[in-house]
Structure formats: C-alpha cells, structure tokens
Nucleic acid binder design. Structure first.
Lengths: 146, 146
DNA sequence: CTGCAAGTTCAAGTTCACTTGAGGTCAAGC
DNA sequence: GCTTGACCTCAAGTGAACTTGAACTTGCAG
C-alpha cells in the first residue's frame, strides 16, 4: 500500500496543497505521519477527500462534514439525521430540476419575454414552490438543529 | 398595480431590506422610483427576486445572475449559454441524486463501516464521476438552500 | 557537498454575499 | 409641534473557505 506525499494527493484529487493543510488543521483529514517535516498520507485519504468534495457539492459546510466523520473515520451518524439530509437533498434536487427545465425552455422558447410565457411561469412556480419567504435561520440556530 | 415599499418587498420575499439595497447597488434589481428618499418597487420585483433566489440555489453567483438579466429586465441570454447552464445543472443534479442515494443507503445499511459496503462504494463512485473538487459555495447560499 | 525545488509554519490577505453601525432625514400619529 | 420609527447613506465588519507571502528547512539529483 503506497503512501502518498502532499503533492501526490493534491494532483490525484485536484485539491491544492494549501487546502489539504487547511483541511488537516480543521480536522477533516489526517496525515498518517511525517517524513522529516513532510506529511505522508495513506491512500484512503483519496476516498476521504472524495467524500468531503461530495458533501460540499451537496451543500454541507466543512463543519457539518467534519461531524459526519466519527472519530473512527467512517461516516457514522444518527440514521434519522442521514434521512433528514437525504430529504433535504430531494427538495434541492427538485428545485434544480425545475431550474434546469426553465433554462432549457428559455433556450427554445420563441416568446420575446419569458415573463410572458406560461410554460416558463409554471416552471418558475414549481422551482419556487414553498420557498418564496425562506425562513431565515441564523447559522447558530442551524448548528443547534443538528 | 400596487407599488411596494422596501419593507413590503422584504416581508413578501423573506429578503432582508439590507439585501435588497445591496442587490440594487449590484444592479440585480431596480426600484422604480423614490417617495422622498424611500425606494418604491413594482410588484414584478417579486418575480425578479424569485429568479435570483432560484439562481443562487442552482449555484450561480450574483455576478452570473446579473449577467442573465439583459438590460431589458427579461432573462435574455445567448441560447447556447442557457443550454450550457442547463447541462451544468444536469450534472450537478446527477451528483446530488447519487449523494442522496448514498445518504439514504447509509441510513439503512447494516454494514458497520460504509467504506466496506459495495453499494455505498458504487454510489460514491457515481457521485464523484468526472469531478475532483467541489465548486465554492457561500454560507448564505447554503442557508438559502435549506 | 551543494543547490534548489518542494516542503514547512504562521499570519495576513482575498472573495463572496451579506450585515451592522453610525449618523442623518422625514412622514405620520399623538 | 414633537416624538417615534422606518427609511436613508456610507463605511466597516463578518464568516466561510481558502490562498498567499515571508521566512525557514529538508530531501535528493547532480
């Protein structure tokens, strides 16, 4: 099992070395040791970084992602929380789909103004359903609710 | 056609008044005029703000969103760009779906470590296909996307 | 053995999207 | 007429997620 130095991890994952150091400082990743002053990583770091990247894409903060990794290093969370996050993603996916359809339609629609096109209106409606007045939540409150 | 003051727009859209002023400064919205020093808005501002919120959820920056509104005020863009954005969204949706499936699976899977579960592995693979690093997202965008 | 590219730390800087604060104006209700 | 509060401007502050810079050290090719 080949060990990796920071440059290898960086180029294999597309993550800047500075970001890796930053993530280590934040406790999201860990180097298995040092060779002199230089960090060395296990290959499993690649999966871990994939997971982090994925979580970021899904809209989780580094803080949240950090909590998803138990001390064991595995994803280890309350199943209810996992399900709740999945539901959250479902909603987001739905809105993104509507947005995508809206864009696609806008690219094809011959109407001079999309605001006058009923199809566009319907898509906009769907994309926004239930979130015209998004209950503003403080970061602190959001953290508490985890 | 009832005109709205900043407080009405704020409460109808859930957008803070300070944000509305900020958006105006950035050219994303415009007030139709002033009553004394106070901004007054056309009701169509509500749709515009819905569109902005939608775009933010879809991961576009304010800058990008600004460019999507031509001077006319309608969404008026190069159709190719619109299509490209739609494709971008498609990819993102795919990844989010995989992530959602991964979370859902993690909530059910009896395996002690998800890193040893082939189903989870497959989902992770799919979620990550063709991408190394996540795009940057602001905290505000994350809050909105809840 | 030496040169130097590539690593290290730590502090400070950057970007984005807002928010907050200080200080001021003004219309409306008492 | 006076107070109150919602609005105004402009500048500075905030938090997340990094990046950059300065100053220093080290592994390894030549």
């Amino acid at each position: 099992m080949k060990l990796l130095d920071i440059a290898e991890v960086a180029s294999l994952t597309g993550t800047a070395a500075s970001t890796l150091r930053f993530y280590e400082e934040k406790g999201l990743i860990a180097s298995i040791g040092r060779k002199g002053a230089r960090r060395i990583f296990e290959p499993s770091i690649l999966q871990r970084l994939a997971l982090i990247s994925l979580g970021r894409t899904a809209g989780f903060s580094l803080e949240e992602i950090g909590r998803m990794f138990a001390s064991s290093g595995a994803m280890d969370l309350d199943r209810d929380l996992l399900r709740a996050k999945a539901d959250e993603l479902d909603e987001k996916i739905g809105r993104l789909q509507a947005m995508r359809d809206g864009l696609r339609h806008a690219a094809e629609c011959p109407a001079p103004r999309h605001s006058e096109c009923p199809t566009f209106q319907r898509l906009l409606q769907r994309a926004m359903s239930g979130r015209l007045a998004p209950e503003r939540q403080t970061p602190a409150a959001r953290l508490r609710s985890l």
